[in-house]
């Protein structure tokens, strides 16, 4: 049994050691906004915030979370930066298929928390999430928009 702090709430989960946080969120807690894409921390669809920093939850064993605060897409708008990011995503009409976008929104939120006024290179190197629909330009524009807002 592990006790996690997710979106400000303590959650007890009865899962095996070694279970990636991603599957605890999705299958144990039913929080399916965080997506499974690759399982090897390549695509970024599973990105959550761990103490405010972007973390790929598919490679994060549940026992490694400890007392850290986990924030998922379900609560991102409770955060001021996250709220601006979601608003910019909608205004910029960023998503297409949308499957990677939870992870993109979380990565953008983490980036802006760390670097409130990111340069183009900050966006380029700060957000390595894959998007198969190729919405990279719309994402970068929305990050710049959220930074200004």
């Amino acid at each position: 049994m592990f006790t996690l702090t997710i979106n400000g709430e303590a959650r007890d989960v009865d899962v095996d050691e070694g279970t990636p946080l991603l599957f605890v969120l999705r299958d144990t807690l039913g929080m399916t906004g965080t997506k499974y894409g690759c399982g090897i921390a390549q695509c970024g669809a599973c990105t959550v915030l761990m103490d405010g920093a972007a973390m790929r939850s598919c490679q994060l064993p549940v026992e490694a979370v400890g007392p850290s605060e986990i924030t998922t897409i379900e609560a991102v708008e409770a955060d001021d930066v996250g709220k601006r990011v979601v608003a910019a995503w909608i205004e910029g009409q960023v998503p297409q298929c949308g499957y990677c976008q939870s992870g993109q929104v979380m990565a953008a939120t983490a980036l802006l928390k760390q670097t409130p006024e990111p340069s183009d290179d900050d966006i380029l190197y700060g957000m390595s999430n894959l998007c198969r629909c190729g919405t990279y330009n719309a994402i970068a524009a929305a990050v710049r928009q959220a930074a200004k807002a």
Partner: peptide, 21 residues
């Protein structure tokens, strides 16, 4: 016209097959 699915997709609310139970 704005896309009708963009708000949900920006909030992680869109449900794909893999999200069903």
């Amino acid at each position: 016209v704005g896309r009708i699915d963009v708000a949900d997709k920006s909030r992680g609310l869109a449900k794909y097959t893999i999200d069903h139970a």
